[in-house]
Design a protein around this nucleic acid. Structure first.
Lengths: 256, 256
DNA sequence: CTTGAGGTTGACGCTGCGTCAAGGTGTAAA
DNA sequence: TTTACACCTTGACGCAGCGTCAACCTCAAG
């Protein structure tokens, strides 16, 4: 079946202008031009347009779509499968948004109280996904699945640019902590390095101006006292890691 | 709780530039400006930003959002409830898109065949909704629920601008047909008007160049022979409507 | 007192079209 | 054949919603 520009635009629910624009930028060329200069679209163009709209739905730029479709290794079935996954994820995000609305309604009626973070739950998820796409792979390779997962949970409260940094800092801290444990010396340079990294790491989560050596040392003690934190460090570093970190931080914060 | 621009942008998952832009266009003004010219946002601004993002999610323009939020009769609870409904509808649309992908995959594997219309199901729905919002109410009032419903089904294949027209033409045809039935005269001016309106109506559904008086008359006969069509006209006009229309069209197409 | 992160105001750039304008073409009815 | 009207064409300009500099100011921690 062949279509003129209006027939195809009606079929697909896009404007004629859009099709002409896609022609101009070489995203979707008509199959042929008839003797009066009319664009004629064939079955291949119909399918390509469908593909384009799927990608557009997923917020790809037209440049990106163009690149993807003209890539040597482009595989239609794979692309569709991937797009389906993304759409399902998008549905999930909408569910979060709906939940956020319902929470907001409840808090509006005075039934509940809502934190400012909660107010933006469905929105921030979008960013996280973008971040994952851009940096996720590299970070995953460098630091392993688990770390990424855990950081993602905390990430809900911090910024885009800071995401990478916290992950890297934390892992560097873990490494230093492991070395310190093997030396069993909280005064060792690696232990002190760990304490310093921990301070840096904290700066991402504590409001500005709230840091003090006292608070830092206090938190370190809490890591030992609160079994949730103790376990977290045990799982990520080794047994006794929380204690080692506390000792290191106490020495670190005692210094001028 | 008060926020600086970065704190709020991190909280909500938008860029600082966006917040400055919203300030400039008077969509979201900070609560105050401190002595160094910094924008300071308070709880009210947080809630307003949340509202803005909800509307933005639903593809409202910033101008529209601005108007809605500053309207005298703006009611937060109503707005949220409405937004929830829209989000649920959007989820449904995504379901359609996912179904379209699955159909496409099946047809790709050669398991099924897919019509060109089917290929764009989830996309077109968007347009239909817009149309409904713009014109649905007036048309409904004028022509009743049932007609709108039936036309919507057929609309899947025709264009945006043509939607209204077909509905109006069809109804005008029905009226003329009713009058012709009461006169019981297929040669009456109202019967001939009905036949003419039917031809106009057809032009929306038949591919261009396929109309001929012969085909028109043939279709009219089919309306009588095929019980599905006969019933359709019986339900929408009266008993014997299909026959009356056939007779009128036969006379109409016999004229020069 | 330095340093670095975060704040400010312009101003220009980009994407993805919408929207004229000024014309040529195709087809149904007169 | 001509008229009418919907549809086609190529420019060209406009617009929203920011991203992205540049050039400068300010604040907290070491």
């Amino acid at each position: 079946m062949n279509y003129t520009i209006k027939q195809l635009s009606d079929l697909a629910g896009v404007s004629g202008r859009t099709l002409r624009f896609y022609d101009k930028i070489n995203l979707l060329k008509p199959e042929s031009i008839n003797t009066s200069g009319y664009r004629i679209y064939g079955p291949k163009q119909v399918d390509r347009l469908q593909q384009i709209l799927f990608f557009r739905e997923l917020k790809f730029s037209l440049k990106e779509i163009s690149d993807i479709l003209s890539a040597d290794d482009f595989n239609r079935v794979d692309a569709l499968t991937e797009q389906r996954k993304k759409l399902i994820a998008e549905k999930k995000r909408l569910d979060q948004l709906i939940a956020t609305i319902e929470k907001t309604l409840a808090s509006q009626k005075g039934e509940t109280v809502m934190s400012d973070q909660e107010k933006f739950v469905g929105f921030k998820k979008k960013m996280l996904d973008q971040n994952e796409q851009k940096y996720g792979k590299e970070i995953r390779e460098k630091y392993g699945e688990e770390t990424v997962k855990k950081s993602n949970q905390q990430f809900a409260n911090i910024s885009k640019e800071d995401y990478e940094k916290t992950v890297m800092i934390q892992n560097e801290m873990f490494e230093n902590l492991r070395e310190a444990l093997s030396l069993n010396d909280p005064e060792s340079s690696c232990a002190q390095k760990a304490a310093d990294l921990h301070r840096q790491w904290l700066s991402f989560f504590w409001p500005k101006g709230t840091y003090s050596k006292k608070a830092h040392a206090g938190l370190a003690q809490m890591y030992v006292d609160d079994p949730r934190f103790t376990k977290y460090y045990e799982n990520n570093v080794a047994k006794g890691a929380a204690e080692m970190l506390r000792d290191a931080i106490q020495i670190y914060t005692a210094k001028p």
